[in-house]
């Protein structure tokens, strides 16, 4: 047997099985309405849905809606991560603030962000700002908690070392706290990114600010079920892109840190 054959076989096998899984799923989707298990009226054929997907991809208005959703996602994520990093670092570094805000954080964090939708609508109406309130509130906590953990996680020995060498405050932040907190920060960013996308679409569905979410609701009220299914797939693909993208960023930026972080489960 050739030296690298086992690994190559394994990769090919994984690829083949994965493809088989997707093909099998599409086949089942095609067969269920064809065999009348669920009426094609309720579950359109896979081929019809994919064809619609192709049409949408050639439609400029569709891409505008994708742009609107992603803009809300991006702005929300930006605001949330900047605010969470700043507040998290300050509160995490000052023991007094950490103690004083602990219960408040523990109470605010579990509040489901969607509970704020009515309030956001009242204040901002059917606008991007209303959606941003929801997106920022949801993704803020994901980041914030990770930053708090990260800043608090500085190794005791490393800190004593820094103190014994009389590193200044800014040096300590630069060489000790930042590198320790960075992995947590990246994890928080990845989690926040996927939460922000979910809330961006949800907000469009409930608040009716323009974007993919509103498109889905419109298709639904027009009984355009093929359109609904096609758009669900689009949101899934967007989510997939966000997940994979941020996982890649996380891995890239922390390639030096993987061994240290490997075991931690939050």
């Amino acid at each position: 047997m050739a030296p690298s054959s086992t690994r190559a076989v394994r990769t090919t096998r994984k690829l083949a099985l994965g493809t088989a899984g997707i093909v099998g799923f599409l086949l089942a989707w095609q067969l269920i309405p064809a065999l009348g298990i669920i009426s094609p009226q309720y579950l359109p054929y896979a081929t019809d849905t994919l064809a619609r997907l192709g049409e949408e991809f050639r439609d400029l208005e569709f891409w505008r809606n994708v742009g609107r959703t992603m803009l809300a996602w991006f702005l929300g994520l930006m605001i949330a991560s900047v605010a969470a990093t700043a507040l998290g670092t300050i509160i995490g570094l000052v023991p007094f603030l950490r103690r004083a805000t602990h219960t408040t954080v523990e109470f605010l964090r579990p509040i489901p962000s969607v509970a704020l939708i009515p309030l956001a609508i009242l204040i901002y109406g059917i606008q991007l700002q209303a959606a941003l309130v929801i997106i920022v509130f949801a993704s803020f906590w994901q980041m914030f908690v990770q930053v708090l953990y990260g800043v608090a996680d500085v190794d005791a020995v490393a800190r004593d070392t820094a103190r014994s060498f009389a590193l200044s405050r800014s040096e300590r932040v630069r060489y000790l706290i930042l590198p320790t907190a960075l992995p947590y920060l990246m994890t928080g960013l990845r989690l926040a990114a996927s939460v922000a996308l979910i809330l961006a679409v949800t907000a469009e569905m409930v608040i009716s600010n323009p974007g993919l979410g509103r498109m889905i609701v419109h298709s639904q009220s027009a009984s355009d079920w093929v359109g609904v299914y096609a758009l669900v797939i689009v949101t899934g693909l967007l989510g997939l892109a966000v997940n994979l993208g941020f996982r890649l960023i996380e891995r890239r930026s922390l390639s030096w840190h993987q061994s240290v972080r490997g075991e931690i489960v939050l």
């Binding site: 030296p3 054959s5 086992t6």
Partner: peptide, 9 residues
């Protein structure tokens, strides 16, 4: 016992 690996057996 021979181990197979990508860099050779």
């Amino acid at each position: 016992k021979v181990y197979e690996s990508s860099t050779g057996n």
